[in-house]
Simulated scan of single mutants.
Amino acid sequence: MFGIIFSITMLIVLPVAFIGVLWKASFKTKLEWLLDALTTAVLLVWLFQSGNWSWVGYFFRYLWLGLFIIALVISWKKIRSLPFTAKYEKSQKRSIGIHVFLLFVFGAYNTFVFPSYTVDEEAIELAFPLKQGTYFIGHGGNSVQLNYHHAYESQKFALDVLKLNKIGTRASGLYPKDLYKYAIYGDELYSPCNGKVVESRNDLPDLTPPEMNPENPEGNYVALVCEQHEATIFLAHMQYGSVNVTEGEEVKKGQLLGMVGNSGNTSEPHLHIHAELDGKGVPITFNNRFLVRNSLMRTEK
């Protein structure tokens, strides 16, 4: 629950506070206004990229950009006749110092995010394994900023895939216990390649959020080796009783493997997918796209 509160604070309260100050504050000089505007801009760019917007609505992040532009124009009209600098009082100097510090901090966060979008290693091209709507990448990318899996060598390029409903959120409600309120729960899961099943499991129950099963992190899953690469592809957290392939079975790209569930070490229904070879993560792409947090995949059968 703490994670939810923290996310909402970051994605709603912070933008409201910073845009509100830019919109309403009485600046004494253009320098003060410029530092405030730059700090707000850098904050919003960072949140735009790194925030998990499926919590509050994927398109919500564009609202903040629009309001920022409006606040920028209105505040500029109020300060355009002011001098660029002046003799500052102690409180004004303190405010300038705080803005310079925040500008440095948020700027550093952005520099940590940018490497997430590319990889040097050769990626495995796969077919996207879901075909029933608009899917959202909750975790993905080449840095911990956008992908917490990146801290683990075997899963460093893993993806957590959610699905968006009509209002751009991953569920009906903030954190419902009813699994069917999560848009992705029960979606059919298809083989991303021609290959051979090397492991599978089908007997673990779907859990009620926020219950988790750290002793069986994959939950119900399918692991397969594709024809085009020797890495093992893991598709995890599948629905109890839905896995319809077994170890040793040959599968074709697009063949039904089972359904998305909420089994294993997972806080809510989603698909976890990653590739690994000799204990190291291997990048994967879909339609030649390297997906990162906030990427969308629009699909249909």
Rank of each mutant, 00 (worst) to 15 (best):
I184H: 04
S81K: 06
T118Q: 15
E188I: 05
Q132E: 14
P115N: 11
V119A: 08
G140E: 13
Q155P: 03
Y180T: 14
I167C: 00
A127D: 15
S81E: 09
K93Q: 00
F114M: 15
F114C: 09
Y148W: 13
G173T: 05
K93E: 02
A127T: 15
I96A: 00
D187Q: 07
A151T: 14
L164T: 10
A171P: 03
A123Q: 11
G97T: 08
C193F: 00
F128T: 05
L159S: 10
I96W: 01
E122N: 09
L103F: 13
C193Y: 03
A158T: 09
K78L: 02
S143F: 06
L126N: 12
Q155V: 08
K93C: 01
H139C: 06
E153V: 12
D178P: 12
E153Q: 13
E122S: 10
V161H: 08
F136K: 12
S191W: 01
E122L: 05
W76Q: 00
L162G: 05
G141H: 02
T169M: 12
L102R: 04
E153K: 12
K163P: 06
E188T: 08
P115V: 08
D120M: 05
V119Q: 08
Y109L: 15
S143H: 11
Y148V: 14
S116V: 06
I167V: 15
I184P: 07
N165L: 01
L130I: 11
V100R: 05
V161F: 07
